[in-house]
Amino acid sequence: MNGSADIHYLQKRIQELEEKIEQLRLSRRVLMNLIEKIEKDKSGFVSRLEKENRKLHKDNYRYAQNLLQQNRRIVELQAKLETMLEDEAR
């Protein structure tokens, strides 16, 4: 009887361990799917940030060019004004 009880116990224990293995496999699949989704979301987010960064650089370049052009115009107008004032003073 003792040997039969040991066999029954071991068979039950094997079944419990197999169920735990199956649960671990399922948990692993769920975690892998979550990791895959997180990586995909992260990739999309990084892509959007890179696109926004390129747009900001482009806008910043245009703004800097516009400021430079306005500064040149101001210098030209100041030079003309000084020339006019010098001509009037003579």
Rank of each mutant, 00 (worst) to 15 (best):
I38W: 07
A5Y: 07
E76H: 11
D6V: 05
R25L: 13
Y63N: 02
M1Q: 10
N2M: 11
Y61D: 10
I14R: 01
K42M: 07
I74E: 07
T83E: 12
Q23D: 14
E82D: 08
D87N: 01
L24T: 03
L34M: 14
M84A: 04
L77M: 09
K20A: 09
M84L: 00
S4N: 14
E36S: 15
L77A: 05
Y9C: 04
Q15D: 00
D87C: 00
N60K: 12
E18Y: 03
E50I: 06
K12A: 09
E16Q: 09
E19S: 05
K37R: 13
E19V: 00
N2G: 08
I35C: 11
L24E: 08
R29F: 03
A64R: 08
V75F: 14
K37W: 07
R72S: 07
R62M: 06
R13C: 03
G3A: 15
G3T: 10
Q15L: 08
N60T: 08
M1E: 11
L34N: 15
R25Q: 15
N2D: 07
Q78S: 12
K58Q: 13
E86Y: 01
A64G: 01
E18A: 04
V30N: 12
A64S: 06
Q23N: 15
Y9I: 02
A64P: 02
Y9S: 08
E52F: 05
L34F: 13
D6C: 01
H57W: 10
N33W: 02
L24G: 02
L17Y: 03
Q70W: 05
Q70H: 05
D59V: 05
E50W: 10
S43R: 09
I38Q: 13
R28E: 15
L34Y: 14
R25S: 14
